[in-house]
Amino acid sequence: MENNVTSRRNFLATGLAAAAGCANCSCGKSHTHEAQDIQPTGEKVKLLSVDGEVIEVDRAFLKPVPDLPKVSNDIERRGIEGKKFVMVIDLSRCKNVGACKEACNHAHSLHPDHNWIKIDAMQDAEESAPYWQPTTCMHCDNPPCVKVCPVDATFKRQDGIVLIDSDRCIGCRFCMAACPYSTRVFNWGDPQVPEPLASEPYSCETSTPQKIGTVGKCDFCPDMARKGELPHCVSACPNGVFFFGDMNEDSVTNGAETFRFSELVRDKAGYRLMEDLGTKPSVYYLPPVNRNFPFEPKSENKEPTVT
């Protein structure tokens, strides 16, 4: 055991994420590990290992959520390299609990009138069965909203996410008219963001704090993705309706279950909304077959609309 100590200390430079377990195996495979996007703070903390050895760990690498430095607006606009985020929504599992909405509204400190996630009561034809359809921003690959923005306030990133810069938005609402999914909301009045969040600088990745006279919408929580965590709606859903992942990793997860994206969409006949419009959404839906729950309308204004 002792002879491993030195080799283990060498890993400190690459941080906690390094595959230290391999120090004990003579497999000779590549042990190097890129230290993701985390920047060391330079502030070391002395901690004990399981063996009782003293190990210096940079504060930035302390688990479970590393302290990420605030990224600049320029980096926020370019997005995370090598990623292509995707969401899969399993309609057979949704029973309109609304936990996704609540978590999202809370995480982004939205105005009480606003919901970035909407749960539509759908019925495709008069004789077909009704079902619940949660909608987020589709983060289209051919985004109609981005095309029409006059000032680059809404933009498409290399990781596929469409975000809004509320410090630049002029409030013309052309993007709202352009979006066929009606996903965008507008801060008509004061967004009623509580302090101290309200006086913090705006971040495109957290979409907070919302600002009066500007547009808001679902942002796929890239700040969470940077930390390796899932968007708030995904982790909040008690029924595992939402799956999130990276198309470049070919996997999606709802936290508890993880699937290969290509297999899931192939086996369950995944589809995207309004494919005919050519918007190329990043959100896939699994059809509401073999449903876990019956459809129960909750209130009068939630009668399914035949669309």
Binding site: P150, V151, R168, G171, R173
Partner: peptide, 16 residues
């Protein structure tokens, strides 16, 4: 009609 009329100059600064 603009939500942020004071940012009108953005149209020229960040013209798209």
């Amino acid at each position: 009609d603009m939500g942020r009329p004071e940012r009108f100059m953005n149209i020229f600064l960040h013209l798209r």
